[in-house]
Design a protein around this nucleic acid. Sequence first.
DNA 1: ATGAAAGCGCTAACAA
DNA 2: TTGTTAGCGCTTTCAT
Lengths: 334, 334
Amino acid sequence: MEKITSLQVAERAGVSQSAVSRVFTPGASASAKTVQKVRKAAEELGYRPNMMARAMITGKSRMIALVVAYLDNQFYPHALERLSNALQERGYHILVFTAANSRADIEEVMQQLLDYQVDGIITASVGMTNDLTDRCNAAGIPIVMFNRGQDGADVSSVTSANVEGGRAAGQFLLDCGHKVIAHISGWQGSSTGRDRQQGFCEAMHGAGITPQIIDGMYHRDTAAAATETLMTGPNPPDAIFVGNDHMAFSVMDTLRGKLGLRVPDDVAVIGYDDVPLAAWAAYDLTTMRQPLNRMVDATVDALLTRIENPTSPTKHIEIESPLIRRGSTKDPIQ
Amino acid sequence: MEKITSLQVAERAGVSQSAVSRVFTPGASASAKTVQKVRKAAEELGYRPNMMARAMITGKSRMIALVVAYLDNQFYPHALERLSNALQERGYHILVFTAANSRADIEEVMQQLLDYQVDGIITASVGMTNDLTDRCNAAGIPIVMFNRGQDGADVSSVTSANVEGGRAAGQFLLDCGHKVIAHISGWQGSSTGRDRQQGFCEAMHGAGITPQIIDGMYHRDTAAAATETLMTGPNPPDAIFVGNDHMAFSVMDTLRGKLGLRVPDDVAVIGYDDVPLAAWAAYDLTTMRQPLNRMVDATVDALLTRIENPTSPTKHIEIESPLIRRGSTKDPIQ
DNA sequence: ATGAAAGCGCTAACAA
DNA sequence: TTGTTAGCGCTTTCAT
């Protein structure tokens, strides 16, 4: 069973090669008789159209580049799985590019991905430069930033309502009666980290509180160190809002392990994302949920819309982020 | 900046189109002067070779299909990240295909992936049928099964030494003085699950013990239910060997939560994989490590070897699996 | 509705 | 080493 071409199918079906092509091309027309003959011959020969050849002509590869930095935050594999499924259902597939979050690395990766003639790009957990996005726009390849926004760039983005979410998290801690509240923030180089912090600060300032804030950089180690710094400092908090779940787990580990404190009795913890692990008994983490399915649907939608209609405008989609109350926080005071 | 072709570069550089091609083709020869002129023109125009066109001629797309079922077991995202990196370094990229672990779904996915003319296939957490692997062999596309083996199929596989690992896990529990030992196994439809169970049973039988065994199917829920069944049964174990870490976390959650038992004081737990989460304080899980980096290197190696030399034989690589002692088990008795 | 013919952008003989 | 030529397998006019 070596490489069957449309020509061989044509010969066997007694039609022209272009007839075969038409049968396998969605928008084309062929008589019922022809379709029948061609399908039969193709079946017998085990023929399937060559995507490469098709891609070269149509300029559409039906591949989407996914640029991702790290997969250790459970949110991203989860998203990847869903994205792949949703895209696959619509006849697209994901080509993976891993990039460290450095300028040079991303630059290199963007070049590679353009070589593959991908129809679109999804970035997750990586930052873009406007220079880069301009280049893709010039090449006519739409980008959707997943879980990140970017000022002044002509790219679509899908995020949760991070400012609002940060505010809600802060407000909830206030409602629980906490007075000394700290924030271990998401990386301040990311819009997501900045927005959540901003919302949180607004809530705090509304209550006349000036919170301690440390950048957790989305790293477990950094978050653990921040936790120690906070708790052994002059004014240890009785509640911590952490920039994402991934760091919150580290914060809880440090609190309960090395520091010997109880959660939520000594310190309440609230995270962001609601990854599956947050619901597991070992953490039972109160968190702001990022509705993954809706974010994925919006991402796929935004991307395919622009692929099918290149002149359609970029979109900035924000999805509401509900509070999921679990055992890492106390009940609000009536 | 629309689609620059090699012809345009050729004109600007004052050479033939094939000269341009040669400059960008690794194995080809061109004079220093030509290289210089072409590179300059290409740079100015922002030219990069079109992978699709190249792939069509050479028959090499430099894409590897990764077929994966679920990404909720942390072992797989971790592996995916490493695989992508290792492959990217060698000029390949991963095209992702998600498939439920059903015959029909995998069948469909295999067809799709052949359409894309991938150079090789890595399967992770999915089972193949011999029929399917035969088809890929006929098409000349090598397969490596990652973390799974398959009897009687002509495919390469990379696993840890699961039988030996299962035995070591069982023996360790014996050495700790446990007498009533149970096993919540990996899915018995997978070689990995069967092998670990076999090794474990050998250790038990060597000690004259007949263990209770329940298939955990690699699912959290199934493992949780199995835990309850075991602990509320007539002969509750004081140690459980769980088929992988992902289920072991669920077992520990159930033990410590719903059942109110202490680990390891009431029940010792040992897992398999050593995913990052196993080392986190909340679980601190004793486990058999699957050396991810070595498994990934072996996988990439086995795959690229066969791609570059199609007549080379398939390999079955087993990598030793060391015991990582942590807090979910007691110390062995001297 | 169908076949003939013209490429898509590139690599790989083949001469020169 | 270089340019010329012939395709890779397919889609897409263009006549018919």
